[in-house]
């Protein structure tokens, strides 16, 4: 009898070891996208705190909400807000570091293509040329508290807003001792800690040529991952496709030979900005940037000719077995 009870106990023990706690998911709309945060039940309060923080940022940074600080800036007003000043100063530095491939002042050109109001159109060359005279981070003036924009300049923080929001979520999770959570802010991913079973978070990278397939998956712990690709938002006109990632140098959708860029690093804002910048740069310049940029990051480039180029750090986190289509994988290092 004792042996039977011991056996039953052992059976239950064996099974309970492998049964992880059911995760909770919180979904909400903010920053013009759907956001999902996954966590354990005991961390729900912290997740709601992070949600409130993201809503606050949405009200501050939105370009389409008239009452936001960014809208006030774009109307030509002087805005006193230390957080916004710091964000724009960082955006200007990243603009310089990327040779202008990432530029928040490309906003008027993006609007001319209709991507701000979802009213797509192809602007004339004259219109683009005129608008490009107002593009450049030199148009942002800030003393660390007060920010002003030069005449005709406007900014759109859509290229770093969700990344910055994921940084703020990370801060909240850390302050409130969250053991593990996964924030998916419209494709901007922050993997905090591990899953409840101790394993890393599994994040698939969408195949830019097939929306229902993946090019691979990343195993992430305490890391941010952001993907940019022209396939995410586009329209067709006159038999041609125009996507939403505008090259600040030309005013036209970037045609760099890349289909998508995923950046993995320790800061959401940086991952967000670099994924756009590297997409605009193209493969050769992106690799050169990876080898020379002072801040560490990893990247996965999917090229239009069907190759997947990974930095060595990304390759260490990468699983190709989930890819449904044939790709040629190449790994590069810092040299």
């Amino acid at each position: 009898m004792k042996r039977t009870l011991a056996a039953l106990f052992l059976t239950l023990l064996l099974c309970s070891c492998g049964a992880p706690r059911e995760p909770e998911s919180v979904q909400f709309f903010a920053m013009d996208t759907l956001m999902t945060i996954t966590c354990t039940e005991e961390d729900l309060d912290a997740v709601h705190h992070a949600m409130r923080e993201i809503a606050r940022l949405d009200a501050l940074l939105s370009r389409t909400r008239e009452e936001s600080a960014v809208s006030a800036l774009n109307r030509g007003e002087t805005v006193e807000d230390a957080e916004l000043a710091a964000l724009l100063t960082r955006a200007a530095k990243l603009c310089k570091a990327t040779g202008g491939a990432f530029d928040v002042t490309v906003a008027p050109v993006v609007s001319a293509w209709g991507f701000t109001a979802d009213e797509y159109r192809v602007p004339t060359q004259e219109e683009i040329t005129a608008l490009l005279t107002h593009v450049g981070a030199g148009g942002i003036g800030s003393d660390g508290e007060v920010t002003t924009l030069a005449e005709g300049v406007s900014v759109d923080l859509g290229g770093i807003g969700k990344g910055y929001a994921s940084d703020c979520a990370a801060r909240v999770f850390k302050e409130e001792n969250v053991s593990g959570a996964l924030a998916a802010l419209g494709g901007n991913i922050y993997a905090h800690g591990t899953k409840s079973d101790g394993s890393p978070w599994r994040v698939a990278v969408r195949d830019p040529f097939d929306g229902s397939a993946y090019v691979g998956a990343l195993s992430l712990t305490d890391a941010f991952a952001v993907t940019s690709g022209g396939y995410e938002r586009y329209f067709e006109s006159g038999g041609k496709t125009y996507h939403h990632i505008i090259d600040p140098a030309t005013g036209y959708p970037a045609e760099s030979g890349l289909a998508s860029v995923t950046v993995v690093c320790g800061e959401g804002l940086l991952a967000d900005a670099l994924s756009t910048a590297l997409y605009v740069m193209g493969e050769a310049k992106a690799i050169e940037f990876y080898r020379t940029f002072e801040e560490p990051f990893d990247m996965i480039l999917v090229t239009q000719d069907g190759r997947v180029v990974l930095t060595e750090g990304a390759a260490a986190l990468w699983d190709t077995s989930v890819a449904e289509h044939s790709y040629q994988y190449e790994t590069i290092n810092k040299l």
């Binding site: 996954t38 494709g187 978070w201 599994r202 994040v203 993907t227 995410e232 989930v322």
Partner: peptide, 26 residues
């Protein structure tokens, strides 16, 4: 775990259950 999202109408359609991945980027 996959979803279809319509932002203008605030519609989210999700296939239920834990999938192979915890999230998708891109």
């Amino acid at each position: 775990g996959e979803s279809i999202v319509c932002l203008p109408n605030r519609v989210v359609v999700t296939l239920e259950g834990a999938g192979e991945f915890d999230a998708v980027t891109g």
